[in-house]
């Protein structure tokens, strides 16, 4: 009996760091946010119960809908761009090329650089006055493009930057997926007369479906959490064209002290993400072969 008791004590002790972390940094904030959803709170006065008013406001808040549309627009550019470029790079880097270890490391580098630093770097690159990109364009006779100040271009510009930043991670995922496919499967296909395109279309792509699902889900999660890039580069402008849901939530919370409404936005976003991932799982998830 005694040993059983000391066993359970030891168990609790060993799991306590995680349990404390879970309670303090996850369960409590989630619980408190849920409480805030039904309250109005400005950080100064006591929270005031408002029932479902935060939700009804959310439904009619055109700024929220604009932020959601912006975020979806970002995702529509970001996810396909991310997949195409990462997959192409992974295919090249899977080949026995000279210096591939160097390139693998180089493409991964932006992932480990701080988001704020990358954003400032790209702000300079996009600059109309001193930006490298516009300078290169000017060399071929193209007028300076107002990357971050034109409402039609700002979000794609941010999407390109975000893709560059996260690319390395997805290249690694795809690379792992490609390298897991046995070489003999390609050799068998080659002996049947498959061209490089056939190999890609009928072998690599279908066998990468599980990786593709992972990349799509992770890009979706990351994309919906778009914050640091518009926050640093554009502040949500021009004309609200880069205002993302998370940035809007942040502004509601810390610029306008609408903590209850910000919490409501957070829950709404979580719900939207769940629905998206569920749909992706239904259509993209498949058996794992290796």
């Amino acid at each position: 009996m005694q040993s059983e008791q000391s066993h359970s004590k030891a168990g609790i002790l060993f799991t306590s760091p995680y349990l404390i972390h879970l309670v303090v940094f996850f369960l409590y904030p989630v619980g408190f946010s849920l409480y805030l959803v039904f309250h109005r709170w400005d950080l100064m006065t006591d929270p005031e119960y408002v029932g479902l008013r935060n939700f009804t406001y959310l439904m009619s808040d055109h700024l929220f809908w604009q932020a959601l549309t912006n975020t979806l627009y970002f995702l529509v550019i970001h996810i396909p761009l991310q997949i195409i470029v990462a997959l192409a790079l992974a295919i090249v880097l899977a080949k026995p090329l000279k210096g591939r270890v160097f390139f693998r490391a180089t493409f991964f580098l932006p992932v480990v650089i701080s988001g704020a630093a990358v954003t400032i770097l790209w702000q300079r690159l996009y600059s109309t006055e001193v930006g490298l990109i516009n300078y290169v364009l000017s060399l071929v006779g193209i007028d300076a493009v107002p990357w971050l100040t034109d409402p039609g271009i700002a979000m794609p510009a941010i999407a390109i930057m975000a893709t560059w930043k996260n690319l390395g991670l997805y290249v690694v995922f795809f690379l792992a997926g490609i390298l897991a496919i046995p070489q003999t499967v390609y050799e068998a296909a080659k002996m049947e007369g498959a061209s490089s395109w056939h190999e890609f279309r009928y072998i690599t792509l279908p066998l990468l479906k599980p990786t593709m699902f992972l990349v799509v889900v992770m890009s979706t999660l990351g994309g919906f959490n778009l914050f640091i890039e518009p926050y640093v580069m554009t502040g949500g402008g021009p004309l609200g064209s880069t205002m993302s849901v998370v940035l809007y939530m942040y502004k509601q919370a810390f610029s306008f002290q609408h903590m209850g409404y910000a919490a409501t936005l957070g829950f709404a976003l979580a719900l939207i993400i769940m629905v998206c991932v569920f749909i992706q799982k239904k259509y993209l998830d498949s058996e794992r072969y290796y």
Binding site: P182, T184, V185, E187, A188, A189, K190, M191, E192, G193, A194, Y202, I203, P206, L207, K209, E287, Y289, Y290
Partner: peptide, 19 residues
């Protein structure tokens, strides 16, 4: 080219297309 040699091969790990 290997596909034009009229030669088939049976691989050790079968090399079937799993999907």
């Amino acid at each position: 080219e290997s596909n034009l040699r009229n030669i088939s091969m049976v691989f050790q790990n079968y090399a079937l297309f799993p999907h």
